[in-house]
Design a protein around this nucleic acid. Structure first.
Lengths: 218, 218
DNA sequence: CACCCGAAGCTTACGCGAAGCTTACGGATG
DNA sequence: CATCCGTAAGCTTCGCGTAAGCTTCGGGTG
């Protein structure tokens, strides 16, 4: 698990960092919003622990700007102010949970865990054709429930045909989709790949149109 | 949702009860521990809202006795005392969350939701794959009953693969998962870790997809 | 209308080279 | 001083381009 800790009090941050690291997490700790902002722009964290009172600004506005950028990373607020308004405000601005200082270290751990579980329910983009289930996001294919292993080139071809489903895709389109500029093919490599695809995914999934190209037929 | 509310101040309990009932919940309100104890012995609630200061005893001892009976019902503490010791004590005795008075009604609602979701998830907090028992909350792994010691990087990789079980995870996803921004890897460190994971967890647990990534196969 | 022939496409085996695996080593860390 | 981890070297594996031999298609000719 990758954790971003934004907290200016070293006395609080250090033991928390160590406690979480002892649990085999990777913790990156920054005491200012500026540094944290640079970090969150470039790295994908599993969860952010955010203090509200920081030397260079208010954590709540940071929270808002992060959410405005459509970042879905779970954020847990750490705050010494135990006023209701702050908590509600934080939740309204897109925080996922909050912990009130001083907090128990194991309590923070538990909160991190539940929040991450919640966000882990990602919706996979899947397509179904005949007996095939295709997951576009992770490039996996199952046939009658059995996983089918496609190679990189095979998937490349398949994906192009899939996106232009039931349209005739010319050979050149397929070639440019699979081969980098400058890469030459002096043989029937393309047809060889089509052949391998057919044996893996079904004999009549891909129809040939002589002199024109190929079609994926649902 | 079936909710047990234990609170002696009618001025606080009544609006809360009404607010929750407006959300189509069933709320049973008791002002004393005796009545509440009788209720919890006979009825299965989804969540308990527990005040700590009650006319006929301390809410904390009630909490302990309930937990001693091995009841897993989620309990949220309502307390006017905002002393740290009370909150920590409550959590240690098995409370799932706490709300400090005066609280916002919607906040309590949100807390109830998260706590219920958490308790529903708790069954799945340990995962079993083949001869491996994986505890997601404390990051421990046993193989055939023998504990397996994973390093931070190893667990990091394993966790990512676990969350996307039986899906192809690209190498760069794995790299960004365990390396901080700016950290460069100019070698096959990733593959080395995968190799070490395989020797620790089983030869064929992780499958390679050339040019694409890795898969954890149950 | 049947036949034929060449072009287009299909399939399979093979070998090369890149991608991945394993292991030892040494620096860093705490 | 024990552990973790990145590096690099040597090894193994497997994807993929190549090419040979085959099948299929279609149109032109008798």
């Amino acid at each position: 698990m990758r954790i971003l800790l934004i907290e200016d009090e070293a006395a609080l941050a250090r033991p928390l960092k160590e406690h979480l690291e002892a649990d085999l997490n990777m913790v990156e700790w920054f005491p200012t919003l500026d540094e944290a902002d640079a970090a969150i722009r470039t790295t994908e964290y599993d969860v952010v622990l955010l203090d509200l009172q920081l030397p260079d600004g208010d954590g709540l506005t940071f929270l808002s700007t992060v959410r405005d950028r459509a970042l879905r990373t779970p954020i847990i607020i750490l705050t010494a102010r135990d006023k209701v308004s702050d908590r509600i405000d934080g939740l309204n601005r897109g925080a996922d949970d909050y912990v009130i200082k001083p907090f128990d270290l194991d309590e923070v751990k538990a909160r991190i865990h539940t929040v991450c579980r919640r966000s882990a329910d990602q919706i996979a983009q899947t397509v179904q054709i005949r007996d095939l289930w295709i997951n576009l996001s992770d490039h996996s294919v199952t046939r009658n429930g059995q996983p089918v292993r496609l190679t990189a080139k095979e998937w490349g071809l398949f994906e192009v045909l899939l996106r232009r489903k039931s349209q005739i895709v010319p050979k050149d389109s397929l070639e440019t989709a699979i081969y980098a500029y400058g890469e030459e093919i002096e043989s029937n490599a393309l047809e060889a790949h089509i052949s391998r695809l057919r044996t893996k995914l079904g004999k009549d999934l891909i129809t040939t149109h002589r002199g024109l190209g190929y079609t994926l037929t649902p």
